[in-house]
Amino acid sequence: MKGTLLLLALLVTGELGFQTTEACIPYIEAYTTMVLGNKQLMNALLTKFHPTNGEREAADKVQECFNEAGLKAKILDSIVLHLITDSPECKQYYTQDVKNKIDAFLSKVIGK
């Protein structure tokens, strides 16, 4: 599952012509809303990307997979995401602006 999501994110960012660092924040936001399991929250976030009905249905299915997998799988997937985004290989591509956005987003999520 986590490999599938990562591959999907990389394919989408490649097809849209984005640098992966530019897609980092939106990917983490979308991933977080899917893992939380709240359909309304996920749809609110997806709205800013102007998704088609098919894309919304696909996101719903991914969220259902996360919900069916349970808390343990969600935690393990989140650890993998953290390890990838916090790796030295990824960090070398982050600009200071991206680092600030990640810090601000994590502060909102964690509540610091």
Score class of each variant (00 low, 15 high):
D86N: 11
N67L: 07
L5C: 04
A73K: 02
K108R: 10
Q19T: 13
P26I: 06
G111H: 05
M34Y: 06
L83Y: 00
M1H: 14
S78T: 08
L45A: 09
K48N: 10
D86Y: 11
K61L: 11
C65Y: 03
L41G: 01
Q40L: 09
Y93A: 05
E89W: 12
G14M: 04
I102L: 15
E57S: 12
I102G: 13
H82C: 15
I28M: 05
Q40H: 02
T33C: 13
G3T: 08
T47P: 08
L45V: 06
I75N: 01
V62E: 01
V12K: 08
Q19C: 12
I102N: 06
Y93G: 05
T13K: 09
G17N: 03
G111K: 07
V35Y: 00
G70P: 03
S78D: 07
L7Q: 13
K61M: 11
K74N: 02
I79C: 11
A30L: 11
E57G: 01
G37D: 01
V12S: 05
K112L: 15
T33V: 13
T32L: 09
N67A: 04
F66I: 01
A30E: 09
G14E: 07
V80T: 07
D77N: 15
L36H: 00
K74T: 02
D97W: 15
P26S: 04
T52R: 01
S78M: 05
I110P: 12
L5W: 10
T21D: 14
V109A: 03
D77I: 13
S87R: 02
H82D: 14
C65S: 10
T52D: 04
K101H: 11
E29T: 01
I79G: 06
F18L: 13
T52F: 05
S87F: 09
I84V: 10
A69E: 12
I110M: 02
L16Q: 05
K101Y: 12
D97C: 15
Y94S: 03
I102K: 09
L45C: 09
L46E: 04
D103A: 14
Y31Q: 04
G37L: 01
G54E: 14
L36Q: 03
G37P: 01
N67W: 00
A44F: 13
K2T: 15
E22P: 07
E68A: 12
A44R: 15
V12E: 00
P88Q: 14
G37Y: 02
K101T: 06
A59W: 12
N38D: 01
G37K: 00
T47D: 08
L16I: 13
P88D: 10
I75P: 02
C65H: 04
A44Y: 14
G3P: 14
N100H: 13
K39S: 04
D103K: 06
I102P: 07
I79E: 15
C65G: 06
A44G: 06
K2Q: 15
S78Q: 04
E29L: 04
G14Y: 08
E15R: 12
P26H: 02
N43V: 05
L6Y: 00
A59I: 07
D77K: 09
I79D: 08
T52M: 08
K108D: 03
K101A: 15
L36P: 00
I79M: 11
A69Q: 03
A58F: 12
M42P: 03
K112N: 09
N43P: 06
I79F: 10
T85R: 10
I25N: 07
